[in-house]
Design a binder for these strands. Sequence first.
DNA 1: ACCTGAACACCGTTCAAGT
DNA 2: ACCTGAACACCGTTCAAGT
Lengths: 197, 197
Amino acid sequence: MPRHADPTLPARRRAQILEAARACFQARGFRETTVEEICAEARVSPGALYRYFDAKADIIAAIALDARAEAEAAFQELEAGDALVDALAEMARAYFAAFEGAEAAFLTDIWAEAVRDPGLARAMARRDEAARAQLAAAIARAARAGAVYPALSPEDAAETLLAALEGFARRRGLHAAHGEAARLYRSLALHVLKPKR
Amino acid sequence: MPRHADPTLPARRRAQILEAARACFQARGFRETTVEEICAEARVSPGALYRYFDAKADIIAAIALDARAEAEAAFQELEAGDALVDALAEMARAYFAAFEGAEAAFLTDIWAEAVRDPGLARAMARRDEAARAQLAAAIARAARAGAVYPALSPEDAAETLLAALEGFARRRGLHAAHGEAARLYRSLALHVLKPKR
DNA sequence: ACCTGAACACCGTTCAAGT
DNA sequence: ACCTGAACACCGTTCAAGT
């Protein structure tokens, strides 16, 4: 019998619960899935789940922050050259694809939670600012290279592009039929960034 | 004792419940307010409330559709001349103001509900298409008058401007400090619409 | 025809008890 | 130290009974 517990256990349990929750949310959405269902999927008792998360909302918060971290990494790799607009368009395509169908609910659920939960809002705002700074830096680099002539300051252009990205993502869920969102996003980027050709 | 009930009663009761619900949602948000609280505010019993609405979600749906109808009317009055960009900017300012603070939760709550409730989604999509058509028509009028030279087709420009409008509105809730959303929105409209001066 | 309010079903969370 | 699962509190919804 060990004097100290396995120090990797907590992290493993958290991951196990998050994985189960992700599967449930994807299948049925945040509101629709029950803590009991997450427990069944993760094969733990409710008591165990509440040892690792203070509330059901904390689970979706953790998943949301993971997703933001990925987006941040993607922004960091943006090229400085002519390809900026195309890279942005590709990123938008990936973003829209990631929030297709059942995942669209996930996006709006997180937004709705963030408005209510100041802790989640702060955490998301921090991530968001990082992502926006990355994007602004990429725009500034491209501008210095003479590849684009942004209509706005790099910071303002970045904020505008992010706002439009999220707006298109949400509206895609509303009327998928008109979902040429990726094409429209490219046009928007083109006219806000004005590349040299 | 009347043979037939007052025919205006149902409409009055509905309005009475909606008004009470609006007050509660504004104060505490959709999730946080209880049907019991709405009943107390409206001075009806739960049984009476469920006579006029099938579910709590139906109440927020009714309020959402009212709000959309107002937006639609605003779009219809857009001028054809040079003032289009300024009119859009003013509308954006009003939109952002309407969804300030507690109301931001309302916006995201409705979005989250719409993703889950196909009926609400359809109803909102219908309203949205009407609003977008109005905006596209205003852009086309301004273009014919030579006041603007849209970078995209009027329809695409309208969709882009709506997506950005909603995106900015949502992000304003996230980091109100950076909320120069109205100014940014004006710049965006400017570069998508390219007015003649 | 319209309403009341007690009762029901369900679900997030806790906690005494176990190992 | 970590877990179980029964119990609790709460809230959306229903329905038998009233007028």
